[in-house]
Each structure stands twice: as C-alpha cells, then as structure tokens.
Design a protein around this nucleic acid. Structure first.
Length: 880
DNA sequence: CAGTTCACG
DNA sequence: ACGTACGTGAACTGT
C-alpha cells in the first residue's frame, strides 16, 4: 500500500521553539549570535518523522497572509502574540534545511497549513494511500479516518499520541466524524474561535454523546435544561460559525499532485555544511554516524593525501624545510597527556609521524630546536610545555593558528580545532569527538588509518590558513598583537607553567585535618538545630528545611526552588541561630573541597602545581587559569586567606608580588581623556577620596562617602545602572541615580566616552583596546532588550578590561626577557590579572624589588602614570 | 549536563 | 515591561 506523510510545519516549528526557549533556558545560538534552537529541535523532530515515514512526504506552512477565515471573521486569531524575533530569524533557515533534506514543502497565500494537509490527505485517501499526519494542533484530529492517522507531538518527539478512529473514540467517547462538532462547541482560545459560552470539553462530550452532530444539538436546544440550554439557544449562530471556522478545507486548489510529494535525494554536502555553518556539531556527528559512507566521502579521506612516516631516516629527509606541525595529545591537560601523533605539512605534502618514531628521533629534536627553519603551529604553548618535559626546546615558531584565530574572533576561545577551521570555510574535517570519542570513552582508535589522516590534516590546515589569517590581521593592524604580544607571551607562560608552584604538603595536611574536624562539628550542630537529617550541601534540601521545616520567611526563588545564596542567608540571620552556622559551613566546605582537596589533587610528583593558562579563551583578552585555578585563591576573608600559606618558594628564595594600582581606572582615564581623573592620578592622590570630594562637594571625606565613591568608580567600568548601585551601597534607586549623574558631571568625558563607544560598537560591530584587540558585540543588534543592554555594557567594559590585560602581558614579556637576558635565577611564576608574582633567589632580592615594579610601570606608555605596589614574603600569604 | 553557589580580579 | 555590573573556574546536587 502506498503511504504519504503530511507535516504541519508551523505547528512543529512552534513546538520546536518553545521546547527549547522556555523562560530561563539558555537559547541555543552560534558564537556570533544567530539563534539556532528552533533549527536544532526542528531538525531532530523531522529526523524522527522521516525515520518512521514513507516514500511520499510534504511539509505544509502558513504564509502569514490573511486567509478566508480572516475575511469572514475579523477577530480570527486576534490576540495571538507576535512571533518572537528569535524564532522569526530562524524561519529562512528551516526552509533551507527542508530543501537539503529533499522534502517537498508548500504554502499558499489565503490558506493555512491545515487546509493544505486536509486537501492532500483526502486526495491521497481517495487514491488509496495510507496517510500519516504530524502536528501538535488538535484541530487536525478532524481529519482522522480509517486511512488517515494523526500523530500529535506532545513533548519533543518523546511523547507522541497517535489517533486512529479507535483511539479517538476511546479518548473522546464519540466517533471521529463528530470531532469537528466538538470543536465548534468548545471553541479554540488560541485561534479566538468562540464556541458556545459555558461549554467546555466535558459538557461538549456529553452533548455529543446524547445528540450527535452540532446541527442535531441545536435542533434539540429547547429540550436542554437550565443555563446550558439557554446558552446554546442564544449562541446558535455563533456555534454554527465556529464550526465553519474550525473546518479544515479538503478541496483547496493545489498546483501539484501526489506524485510531486515523492521524497527526493538528500543534498548531503549542503546539509552537513549547513549544520556546520550553524555550529550544530551534534547534528553533524549524528548524521555522520547514521551515514558512515557519507562521512567517508564528504569528510576526511576523499582527496586528502598523507604519508605515514615510521622511520628515523624517512623523517630526517623531510626536516629540511619550513613546516606546519601539529601535536595531538590524549588529554586537554598537556602536563599529564601522552602524545598520540604528529602531523606535518609543507602545504603540498602532508605527513603523519607516530609518537614512537617521533620520541626516538634525534633529528626531529634538532629540527625543533634549530632556528634554521620556520615552524607553524596550533596551540604553541601547550606543545612547547610538552616538549620541555622531554628536554626539547621548541624554537623559531613564527605562526600559531589558535592565537591568530583568537585575535580575529575572540569568541572562538572555547571551541576546538575543527570549529576554528570551519570559521575559515574549511569544512572537510571531522570533529575530534568523531575520531576519538568523548568523555570516558575517548581513546586512540585501534586502527592507525582511522586517525593518522585526521592528525596530518590538521597540520595541512595550519599551513593552509596561515596566509589567510595573517592577511586579516595585517589589514586590521593586529599583526603586532600576534608577533609582539601573544606569541612571545606563549614563551613566558610556557616557562611559568613548566616551573610550577611548590605546595607545602605538611601545611596542606594540617589545614585539611583541621578543617575537616570543624566541618563535622558544624554539620552536627546544624542538623541538631534543624531537628531533621538532611544534606547541608544540597541547596534544594537546605531550602526545604529553612523555609518549610523551620518556616523562615522565604525571599528569592530560583527556577528549581528556594534560593539559599549568601544574600538570602544574610537577610535571615536574625530569624534563626542556624543561619550563621550555615554561612560558616558554606565557607568552610568551599575552602575544604575546592582549595584543600582540589589543590591536593592537582599536585604533581614534583610537589608542585602546574596550572594551565588559557591564552585564547576570554572575550576580553585576559588569561584564565585552570587545574588548578590559581587566579581565584581566597584573600577576602582571613579564614580563606590562610590557603595562601600552602604556596611556598624554593629554598633560599622569596616571593615578590607586585600589582598594578587601579589599572582599569587609569586605562579609563587615558582612553576617555578624563581631565580630573588624570590629574588626580598624576598627583598620586587617593582616587576614591578625590572622587568623593568632588561628587559630594566636601573637603573632608568620611569613610561612608569614600566607600560610595569607590563603588561608583568600580561600577562605572562595568556600565553600572542605578538599580544595582543602590543595592551595592544601600541607598534608594533615586539616590543612586543622583550619584551617577553627579559623578558624570565631575567626569564629563566619561559620559561622552560611554556614548561614543556604544556608537562605535553599533557602527562597526566591535570594540577594541589600545593595542587593537577586538571584541565583537553581536548582542547590540539584538531585538531583545536585555541583550542589547548587555551589549552596551560590554562595549564599555571590554576596551578597559582588555587594555589592562594587554598592558600586563607586555610587562610579563619584558620581565621575562630581562630575567633571561641577564641570566637571572629568579622566575616569574604567577599572573593574577593585575598582579605578578616572582620567585626571587636571595641574592637577587634587592634588585628585583626595584626591577619588577619598574618594568611593570614602563611596560606601556598609557599617557597616565601606571603605579604598582610591591611586597616580599616567605609564602603567598605574606604578600599583603 | 544544567543549575546553584562561591572563590578571585 | 523587562531585569538589574564586567571577566573567569570549580564543586556539588539532582535529573
């Protein structure tokens, strides 16, 4: 028997959108801000429909033009909300997707998708087809017959209700022919179809059970008692009209016939490229998995050629040229990873070198260390650290794809190699996840040919993209950022990471024991006060205990329950003695698990932690630090600050720490050319006091005034609003508004700067630092208010935070060069955004106390004096 | 894997 | 009417 599948495109589209864009959900977007959640969900739903469907298929859409229903009823679908922009922007993409899938779609002005489906369904039924309809609009149930089955999508595709005449009768209690009469009685809120007032599903079922069709009900209206009968009698016309409106057309003119709905070929290449363009990685992977023969032709092996090198002689013979080199590691953390293979490419010929051949090759070692040939990499720093551990220096690297791509578009930071290649229109490469698997299952495939080409290809892509990316950087004046900042910084960071930071294991053990005892005691007290046993670490359980069991007045709620964050707890301190214990418990368990246990797990055999600085991640140009994160070691409370005692210098050495004072405000003063601010900095005054003097018109500033001025000084850098400032300094929103406007009168250039930078960002789509580092701000063109406001704040903040980041990077390079050129034993070991920590040997201490601040202050000619403060200590704790 | 909380500049 | 400051990483719970 012939079969046809008819899909209500609009209905499925809305379902796809709403299933993934409910309030509070993070709506799926590409890195540049294109919404893709509906495409993603629609694709998943259509895939499942295709799986269970037939040779013939059609997806019907509404056009948005008025239909015959609008013409006969002005209020048809009145009150329906406008389609959100986040969905509207995805509709062209949906049509594109359908085209690639080879499925026929149709829409016609003046008709709804329902009518198209109704007409085709009847046409097909007459021609002897079995028809499957997919929708989530119950209207379609009127089409159900012996040959027409309607599938209602409830949640995604996981819940589908299938309606045949039998199941319809079971659910509603009447025969399928009467469904339209049922609709006419009940009406439809979403379409603004009135029905009969006072008649809901239950009453309608009863009426139909007794009288059958609507006409029969109306004819017998006199026999129906009470308010119900009265309602029916007075709304006869409305009921008949509702039936007309609800009735799906089954005889609209269609300019094609059933044979035209035959499913065509999938345009596989376009489809995969479409998924890749929209960064829908999971769809690419699952498509390739389902169609391995497609993956083979569109990806990896088609035209790409490489030679596998497995002998020293073969290897040696090609190390007489400039090469792109790619090292594949088993783990993101290259401090503990093993090498899975090396790819090489000169742009014409590509090679794969297995790790054993590489590790035993003296000629490769010599090649990497020599400055005779240029090397091009992806992730230079990680590779350099790995080689350092093998005792091999990595010299004369003149280009790195990761860094170049990061400078071109900082939002690629969180992505992988394949994604970056795609950003530069290279789509014929597999995801690492496809080649190696992911999570616990990640492993080198048993068959070498399954990964050799992948690794060789990465080297090839480095080579291929080099000129293209350099051209972009040159054109944007960013070449120096690559050559004079990021690449040299990789050398500095590699040394810092390799050097590591010694952990005092004895101190760690003592603090751990101590903390563990205190936590146990606290937990016991908390459970005693609560009177019930529960997991204090669980915000959910804690919320239940505080607000239900103990009946405390509940403040904020989150999506999942009560909020138990520190702000909520602070408000409850006077209500119950348990609160203070919980606050202390939270603090101690944080210190215990993140800093004592967490750091212990990151200590290597050399008793040191070797953090990884992510050099290509943040949107602003800052570094980030992980495994362990050494940029968020506690300092704000004395209790937490004790953690810093864990970190100690080598014997006969000290820590020297120097941090920039107010660097972001100085950058703002310089970039916005703020006269009053600049003057205050030139005169080395306390900036918050000066601000308070000017804002409050006083000579003597009290501590509260200084605190408020400080809050505004900080807030202004983030694009503060009056509401959050009022929260922060504990005044009314009105007063906060007042502070801000007075602040901007004192520093009028800041106001201009704020206006201008947002204007610049709107015009150009990005903002930049003084060193031309860019951050693109796609949010500014969003139609969503909150996103646009966020865009304005980041436009303001990114140049400031980013310029400060650029400056300290320059200082690190200068300091590193000074230490190297003068053959000093002291070593730079830590960077914490505006602070550098150096491990200084005794005999260099006096010199370094001078040199380090000096280099930091001279690193960049800002036009506003850069000031540092400097400390010496026997451990990190002592650097105050 | 998402949500919540909390550590830092 | 909306939601309420920028940039990060890690631990834990619970689905």
């Amino acid at each position: 028997m012939k079969k046809i599948t008819l899909v209500d495109g609009n209905s499925i589209l809305f379902r796809a959108y709403n299933a993934t864009a409910y309030p509070g959900a993070k709506v799926l977007q590409t890195s540049t801000g294109i919404y893709t959640n509906a495409v993603f969900a629609f694709s998943g739903m259509i895939d499942k429909i295709i799986e269970i469907s037939n040779s013939h298929m059609l997806i019907a859409f509404d056009t948005g033009e008025p239909t015959h229903r609008h013409k006969s009823y002005d209020d048809y679908k009145a009150g329906r909300k406008e389609m959100p922009e986040e969905l509207g922007s995805q509709i062209p993409l949906i049509h594109e997707l359908i085209k690639y899938l080879g499925i026929k779609e149709y829409s016609m002005a003046g008709y709804e998708a329902d009518d198209i489906i109704g007409t085709l369904a009847k046409m097909a039924e007459k021609a002897g087809y079995k028809v499957d309809v997919f929708s989530s609009d119950y209207d379609l149930l009127q089409l159900v017959t012996e040959h027409i089955t309607v599938h209602m999508l409830k949640k995604g595709m996981r819940v589908v209700e299938t309606y045949t005449p039998e199941t319809l009768k079971e659910t509603y209690g009447f025969s399928h022919e009467l469904f339209i009469d049922f609709k006419a009685l009940v009406g439809d809120k979403s379409d603004n179809i009135p029905g009969v007032p006072g008649v809901g599903e239950v009453t309608a079922k009863k009426l139909i059970a007794e009288y059958g069709t609507l006409e029969n009900i109306l004819n017998n209206a006199e026999h129906i008692k009470g308010k119900l009968g009265e309602n029916i009698r007075t709304n006869k016309e409305q009921a008949v009209f509702s039936k007309e409106l609800s009735t799906i057309l089954t005889d609209m003119p269609l300019p094609f016939d059933l044979e035209d709905t035959k499913v065509g070929e999938v345009d596989e290449e376009s489809l995969i490229n479409f998924y890749k363009r929209l960064e829908l990685k999971q769809l690419v992977i699952s498509y390739n998995k389902k169609n391995p023969e497609v993956a083979a032709t569109t990806a990896e092996t088609s035209e790409f050629q490489y030679k596998a090198i497995d002998s020293e002689n073969a290897l040696k013979s090609l190390l007489n040229q400039d090469l792109a080199i790619y090292f594949e590691f088993s783990d993101f953390n290259y401090h503990k990873a093993e090498l899975w293979g090396v790819g090489l490419s000169n742009g014409k010929i590509n090679y794969f070198v297995d790790s054993e051949t590489f590790l035993n090759s003296a000629s490769f070692k010599a090649y990497l260390e020599s400055s005779k040939y240029k090397k091009y990499t992806y992730h230079y720093k990680g590779t350099k650290v790995f080689l350092k551990k093998l005792g091999t220096e990595f010299n004369h690297v003149t280009y790195d794809l990761l860094l170049a791509a990061y400078l071109i578009q900082s939002s690629i930071g969180k992505q992988d190699f394949t994604f970056i290649a795609q950003q530069f229109q290279i789509t014929d490469i597999q995801y690492d996840e496809e080649v190696y698997g992911k999570g616990a299952k990640k492993a080198l495939p048993l068959i070498p040919s399954d990964y050799e080409g992948h690794i060789a290809k990465k080297a090839y892509i480095i080579h291929k993209l080099m000129q293209q990316t350099l051209d972009v950087l040159t054109e944007r004046n960013q070449l120096s950022l690559l050559n004079d900042v990021e690449l040299p910084l990789s050398d500095v960071l590699a040394d810092m990471e390799y050097q590591g930071l010694t952990v005092d294991l004895k101190e760690l053990e003592n603090q751990t024991k101590d903390m563990s005892l205190r936590i146990d005691k606290l937990r016991t007290e908390i459970l005693l006060l609560a009177g019930v046993d529960f997991n204090v670490d669980s915000p959910k359980q804690l919320g239940d205990v505080l607000f239900d069991t103990l009946g405390l007045p509940n403040g904020k709620k989150t999506k999942t329950g009560y909020s138990t964050g520190i702000e909520v707890l602070n408000n409850l301190i006077d209500h119950h003695p348990i609160i203070n214990l919980i606050i202390e418990y939270r603090q101690l368990t944080k210190l215990y698990s993140t800093y004592l246990i967490g750091i212990k797990e990151s200590v290597f055999e050399d008793n040191r932690v070797h953090t990884i600085y992510n050099q290509a991640l943040t949107l602003t140009g800052r570094l980030s630090s992980l495994e362990p994160n050494l940029q968020n070691i506690p300092i704000r409370t004395e209790e937490g600050r004790q953690i810093r005692k864990l970190f100690i210098p080598e014997p006969d050495s000290y820590f020297v720490g120097a941090d920039y004072s107010q660097i972001e405000l100085r950058v703002l003063a310089a970039m916005a050319d703020v006269k009053n601010l600049k003057q205050a900095f030139e005169e080395d005054q306390d900036i918050h006091t000066v601000t308070a003097q000017k804002v409050f018109h006083v000579d003597t500033v009290d501590s509260e005034q200084r605190r408020r001025a400080k809050a505004v000084n900080f807030g202004i850098i983030y694009g503060i609003g009056p509401w959050s400032l009022s929260e922060d300094i504990g005044v009314t929103v009105k007063e906060a508004e007042n502070f801000i406007s007075r602040y901007l009168e004192v520093y009028p250039e800041i106001k201009d700067y704020m206006t201008n930078i947002v204007e610049f960002a709107k015009t150009h789509g990005y903002v930049e630092t003084l060193l031309n580092r860019r951050r693109y701000i796609p949010e500014l063109s969003s139609k969503v208010f909150n996103l646009r406001e966020f865009g304005k704040r980041t436009s303001l903040n990114a140049p400031i935070q980013g310029t400060a980041a650029d400056i300290i990077k320059l200082a690190m390079i200068d300091l590193h060069n000074y230490l190297k050129d003068n053959k000093k034993k002291s070593k730079l070991i830590l960077q914490v955004h505006d602070e550098l920590i150096v491990e200084v040997v005794k005999e260099e201490l006096d010199e370094m106390k001078e040199v380090i601040p000096n280099i930091m202050e001279k690193a960049f000619n800002l036009g506003v004096r850069l000031k540092t403060s400097c400390d010496v200590g026997n451990n990190w704790y002592e650097l105050k």
